[in-house]
Each structure stands twice: as structure tokens, then as C-alpha cells.
Simulated scan of single mutants.
Amino acid sequence: MTASFVYRRSYRGPVVACVFDWAGTMVDHGSLAPTSAFREAFAAFGVAISEAEARGPMGRAKLDHVRDIGALPAVAERWQAARGRPFDENEVQAVYADFIPRQVATAGAHADLIPGAADAAAALRARGVRIGATTGYTRAIMAAVAPRAEAQGYAPDVTVCADDIAGRGRPAPGLLFQAMTALDAWPPAAVVKVGDTVADVEEGLNAGVWSVAVTETGSEMGLSLAELEALTPEDRAARRLAAADRLTRAGAHFTIPGVADLPEVIDAVEAHLARGETP
């Protein structure tokens, strides 16, 4: 038997694009806006949910997020007791319709840039990296966020929202693929995805790109900047390590406290690429 040569292509160029999540990554330290809106929406139907229950599916498209909360056995039981009927798709749509205007209001009120976000994006652009974004937010929600972020110095070249594509949202890779197409960013090994949730990490992995997770500014920590800075150094370190462990176990290639630390990660990614290593 004659052995045959198999060519294996290896991309060894630079990072060409970085695609960020929004809440918890670039704006809204602690990803506080979605949590409060979900709790208020369920409470409007007489069903209380905890912060942990509201945060559990964070990063998903918001309609899927409502479905996931209602599918929790404890929430489903409370819903049945309060409403006298199961949490079916009709109930999902009712809660979602109540949620959207609440989320628009809270997202706009929590649109402050996370420290270092604008500088990190500017540093990437200075080295020729294109900037994109994907989000579980809808276009209506982003209309309350994007102008405020731009006024503070951050405006990605493209943002793909949960309702911009048909089919499954994150962790499916469709949003990220659309962002990559709009940015003319390829191959996947030349792209970095940055987010704060397991859904973000899995979105990157499912698209075949480098997946970077922030630990201190997002939903895993769940604290405002003031709350984070009020922690003792020991408590802050322990909580950061716990968040890093969860996100690393989800598959993140790198974890960093926040996006201010991203330029060093891009250097590390490009060193891997130069050696012919891929995500």
C-alpha cells in the first residue's frame, strides 16, 4: 500500500477581527440590566424569581432566556401555583412582551462603558483589527444602548442582534458568522470572540474562533463596579478564580478580568498562530 500525502493548511497570519458581546463585556458592569428586567417581568405575572434564576441562561437570546427561566422546575412549579396553568409557549410570549419595554428602559440606564473598553477597541483598531459585536439583545434594546456607547467612544463596525437572523441564537454560531461575513473576517482562526457568559464562550467555540471570557465585569461576577471595588482583595480574587474556572470549563481559551486586558491576549493568540496552532 502506498501512503498518500495529505495537505493540512495552517493559518499563520495576524488576528483580523475581534467580536465582542455587549452587556457585561463592553457596557453595563455586572450585566445588571437584564437581571432586573427579567425579575420585574415575571413579578408582573405574580411569580417571583431569584437573581440566580434570572442570571442562569445569561447570554442567550432574550426570548430563549424567558423560555429557559420558565423551564426551571422550581419556577415552573411557582408559575403553576400562581397562574393555575403551565408555563407554555403562550405564557412565554406574554412574559416576553412584558419584558421588552422593561429591558429597553433598564438597558439604556445601564449603558456606561466598562473601564478600558474604549481604549481596548482603539488599541485593536490601531493594529488593523476590525471590531464587531453580537448580542442577545434585540434591535429595539440596542437602540437604547448603542448611541450612549458611541457618545462615550465605542462604536463597533457591525452589531448583530438576536432578532437579526432566523433560527437559533447563541450558543449557535449564526450571529457570529453573520458578524464575520459583514466584517469580511476569515479564516475563523483569525477571529477572536470576547464575552462574559458560557453562551458567549460556546458561540465562539461553535464558530471555530478563539474564545475569550471576562471574569470580573460580567454576569459570572454579577457586581457593579462600585460593588466589585468594595470587595476585599481576598474575596475579589476568590470570586474571580471561581468565575474563571466556570468559563474555562465551558471551553474558553483565555480568561481575563476585563477587556482592558485584551491586547495582551491578542499578542498571545498571534503567537499561537505563528506556530501554526489553531483554536
Rank of each mutant, 00 (worst) to 15 (best):
T135V: 13
P147G: 10
F38V: 08
L223W: 11
S4T: 10
D200F: 01
P257V: 04
E40M: 07
V209E: 12
A144G: 02
A123Y: 02
A111V: 03
L176G: 10
F20A: 10
M26V: 15
F254W: 15
A151L: 00
E229T: 14
F5D: 03
D64R: 08
E150L: 06
A143H: 01
R8S: 11
V95L: 11
D200Y: 00
M26L: 15
R130A: 03
Y154F: 15
T135W: 05
F42E: 02
L262S: 13
L124W: 08
V6L: 14
G174M: 00
E220F: 01
F45L: 02
P101C: 12
V269R: 01
T135M: 12
A97D: 15
F5L: 07
R8M: 09
G204L: 03
H253P: 09
A120R: 04
I266F: 06
E40W: 06
Q93T: 13
P233N: 12
W22V: 15
R240T: 06
P14F: 10
L262Y: 05
A230V: 14
Y96F: 15
R39N: 06
F177T: 04
A44M: 02
A207T: 04
A166L: 03
P171C: 05
V15I: 11
V19R: 03
D163M: 00
A23L: 06
T25I: 08
E216K: 11
A155Y: 02
V158T: 14
Q103F: 14
T255N: 12
G204H: 01
V259E: 10
A82I: 09
E220Y: 08
G70H: 04
E229Q: 14
H110F: 01
P101S: 13
A76K: 05
V212A: 04
R39D: 08
A126K: 10
H65L: 13
L183I: 07
S224P: 06
V19F: 02
I114T: 05
